[in-house]
Amino acid sequence: QWKVGDKCSAIWSEDGCIYPATIASIDFKRETCVVVYTGYGNREEQNLSDLLSPICE
């Protein structure tokens, strides 16, 4: 189960590419979260089910 502060990978809606991110907040009722893309600072809402394991850098 994901928690705030977890590192993950998420698909950015603008280009469909996968980027490393950190979970900033979680809404368990809606099963969504807000991620912050590492190195970019962009925030975006994602479905918890769409999150991927962190990418090894």
Rank of each mutant, 00 (worst) to 15 (best):
V4K: 01
T32N: 03
D6N: 00
T32F: 09
C17I: 06
V34G: 00
S49R: 13
W12E: 01
Q46R: 07
V4N: 07
T32A: 01
D15Y: 08
K7A: 12
I11G: 01
L51S: 01
E14H: 13
D50K: 06
E45V: 12
A10G: 00
W12C: 11
E14I: 15
W2L: 13
Y37V: 00
C33E: 00
N42C: 13
K7C: 12
C56T: 15
E14G: 15
T22H: 03
S9L: 15
D15K: 09
S53I: 09
F28H: 14
G41E: 04
I11T: 06
I23N: 02
L52Y: 10
R30S: 10
S13Q: 03
N47T: 06
G5W: 09
T32K: 08
L52E: 02
N47I: 05
G16L: 08
S53P: 15
A10P: 01
V34W: 11
S9Q: 12
P54D: 07
L52K: 06
G41A: 06
L51I: 08
S9Y: 15
P20F: 12
I23W: 04
E31N: 14
C33A: 15
V36F: 04
C8L: 00
C8S: 00
E45C: 08
D6K: 00
F28E: 12
I55F: 13
D6C: 12
D50S: 05
S53T: 06
D50Y: 10
E45P: 05
C17V: 05
E31C: 10
S13I: 07
C17H: 15
V35P: 00
S9I: 08
Q46T: 05
N42S: 12
I26N: 05
N47P: 08
I55Q: 12
C8V: 15
C33Y: 08
D27M: 08
A24G: 04
V34M: 08
I26L: 04
K29P: 05
P20G: 08
R43T: 12
C8H: 00
T38D: 15
W2Q: 13
I18K: 01
I26H: 02
Y37D: 00
C56D: 15
Y37P: 00
A24Y: 14
S13C: 03
D6L: 09
W12H: 04
C33F: 09
A24K: 04
C56G: 14
V36R: 01
E57I: 13
T22L: 10
T32W: 09
N47W: 13
D6M: 10
I11W: 10
K29C: 06
T38C: 13
G5N: 06
S49W: 10
E44F: 08
K7G: 10
C33T: 00
E14W: 14
D15C: 08
I18E: 03
G5I: 06
I11S: 02
T22S: 04
S25C: 07
C17P: 01
V35M: 06
A21Q: 03
L48C: 15
D50N: 06
N47K: 14
T38G: 01
W2R: 13
K29M: 12
T22E: 09
